[in-house]
Every structure is written in structure tokens, then in C-alpha cells.
């Protein structure tokens, strides 16, 4: 089987989310990549070095700069004439593009796969991760999105892919990019952080969140997350949210502070290697999944912990 993997990038560098998709695609067959963007030749060069990669298709066109689905989906659909499976990381970019490609190909997409069980058989979470379905496709071609935390990341070196320029359809003229507000931060991104410190509603307000969570995260070089309750209460922006409706993370260590452990939240972090929970309610559901728990007042515990680390 020949696969085509969507390379997630910012026109400068390959994003980590790509690497898990490469691993998933490698379980299906030959791995080809698509780098679609503007002035993104350097991305293609970098992508060609990913272990296990064959051909890298480079579609360099101003119309592809912001990965607008209206423009890139027809490009992918064209390339699928020579490929058997389109494999996309389940990022907001991938989730936006892949179904549009699937419909153009008259294929039923398989979303958010957790494992590859056969040529056309996969497992995927349903009901917010409360159940795992095993599904088999009967379509001639596959369109798949890949949950990043479910697959190892492919090595970024060792590959010797060849870059080949491809051209595709021009700007569809249906949509245009206006602006973006991307939080600039020195911190590791949540989806790639080794350690995450996450705060919940018990943090009380935005100031105390900053005062208690941030110094501990700084000390550990950790990413910062939050529960939906903390986001809805306005302690931190939306993109901090870990959970079924936010980001799905699986760091080495996840430290949940003042988070009770609603199903919604657990769905986003229960695949973390080690979970540490600090909560004053000893019956909080978070302790049922935590490897290490400490019951007590976070406003006393967290400063002491930050100091002693």
C-alpha cells in the first residue's frame, strides 16, 4: 500500500504531530509525504530526513500558505490518484482538511485512530474515549486521521527521501486567511511536553493560577494545561484546555492540581505515563487514575513543592 502523509508545518519547520502519523502510515505500507505551503522548500528537505520516508511531494504555492481546506483538499485528492491511503495527524489542521478530502474521493473517513489492526482495520475512540471501536473500511481508498499520543514518533533523522515538486489546483477563491492569534511562549507545547502541570477550578482565579501553577511549571520545564472548568472560568485561554474537547496529551508525567477528574478531563490525559494528583478532596475521581496522590490544600502544598524541588 502507498500512503500519503500530510506534513504539518508552519512553512519553516516540520511539526511534531507529523511524526506519529508517519509511524501509523508505516504500518500500512510505503510512506510518501505531502508538504503543501508557500516558500516551504526547507520543510520538504527536513521532512525527507524523517526515518522511513520515500518520496516527499512539495506543493509550493501561495494558495497553500495557510492550509485552507478549500485549496489543499483538491490538491490532496489529485495526488490520491497514485496513493491508497491519506494519513493526517488529528490536529485542528488535519481534522479540517481530511474529511473534505474524503468527501471528494467518496470515502468514509476513519477518525482519530489508536492502532492499525490490519490493511483496512483500525481501532478508534468513541463516546469521548469511554469505548473503543474496531472498524474495517470497505472503501477502495483510505482517509485516516491519527491520534498523536497513540503512536511512537518517527525519528527525525536517518531518512533519505527524495523531494519532488508537484503542482495542484489554484486558489479556489472561496476563502481567505485574515489573521491568527497564536500564543507565543517559551514553554513546550502541550502535545509534545514531557511534563505537564495542569490546574483546575480550585485555583480560584487567573492571578492565583499564575502565582501557583507557573513557578512549579518553570521549575520543571513543563507545559501548562488546565481543566475545562478553569478555562470556562477564565483563568487561562482556551488553548490550555486538556480534555476530550481540548487537547489530548500523553506526557511522561502529568501533574493535576486542584482538578477533580471529570470524565471529560480524564479522556484528554489518561494515557499519560505517570499521573500525579494534588487535591483536597480525598474522594476526587482523579485519585482513581493517579499513580501518586497527595491529599491536601494546594495553596500550601504547591509552594512547598516548588521550593523543595
Amino acid at each position: 500500500m502507498k500512503t500519503l502523509v500530510w506534513v504539518e508545518h508552519d512553512n519553516n519547520a516540520v511539526k511534531d504531530a507529523t511524526l506519529a502519523a508517519v509511524t501509523a502510515a508505516g504500518k500500512l505500507g510505503e510512506v510518501h509525504l505531502l508538504v503543501a505551503g508557500a516558500n516551504c522548500a526547507a520543510v520538504a528537505e527536513e521532512a525527507a530526513k524523517i526515518a522511513g520516508v520515500g518520496k516527499v511531494h512539495l506543493a509550493d504555492n501561495p494558495a497553500y500558505e495557510h492550509a485552507l481546506a478549500e485549496n489543499v483538499a483538491p490538491l490532496v485528492a489529485d495526488l490520491m490518484g497514485h496513493h491508497d491511503a491519506f494519513v493526517c495527524p488529528a490536529t485542528t489542521t488535519g481534522k479540517n482538511i481530511a474529511p473534505r478530502v474524503a468527501a471528494l474521493l467518496d470515502v468514509m473517513q476513519i477518525s482519530d485512530i489508536l492502532s492499525v489492526e490490519g490493511d483496512k482495520t483500525f481501532t478508534r475512540p468513541i463516546y469521548a474515549g469511554n469505548a473503543i471501536a474496531t472498524v474495517t473500511s470497505s472503501d477502495a481508498k483510505l482517509v485516516i486521521t491519527v491520534r498523536g499520543t497513540a503512536f511512537e514518533k518517527a525519528e527525525t533523522t536517518g531518512g533519505s527521501g527524495t523531494v519532488e515538486a508537484v503542482s495542484g489546483p489554484a486558489d479556489a477563491g472561496l476563502s481567505s486567511f485574515v489573521s491568527s492569534e497564536i500564543a507565543k511562549s517559551e514553554r513546550p507545547e502541550l502535545t509534545s511536553a514531557k511534563v505537564i502541570v495542569s490546574g483546575g477550578r480550585a485555583l480560584k482565579d487567573a492571578d492565583t493560577f499564575q502565582e501557583y501553577i507557573i513557578p512549579l511549571a518553570d521549575k520543571l520545564g513543563a507545559g501548562v494545561g488546565a481543566s475545562r472548568a478553569a478555562v470556562d472560568a477564565g483563568y487561562v485561554p482556551n488553548d490550555y484546555q486538556v480534555g476530550q474537547t481540548g487537547k489530548i496529551v500523553a506526557p511522561e508525567v502529568y501533574i493535576a492540581i486542584g482538578i477533580s477528574g471529570a470524565i471529560q478531563h480524564l479522556a484528554g490525559m489518561k494515557d499519560s505515563k505517570t499521573i500525579i494528583a494534588i487535591n483536597k478532596d480525598e474522594d476526587a475521581p482523579i485519585f482513581q487514575v493517579a499513580d501518586i496522590g497527595l491529599v491536601g490544600d494546594l495553596f500550601k502544598i504547591v509552594p512547598e513543592l516548588t521550593e523543595k524541588l
Binding site: 485552507l68 485542528t92 476563502s175 485574515v178 491568527s180 492569534e181 500564543a183 488553548d239
Partner: peptide, 14 residues
Amino acid sequence: KREIDGGLETVKLA
């Protein structure tokens, strides 16, 4: 205005 990984993005649609 769309919620995307890392922040927000605004697109204009016909």
C-alpha cells in the same frame, strides 16, 4: 474565528 491548536485563526468565507 476558528479555535486551532495554539490559538485562534480568522478566515473570510464567501
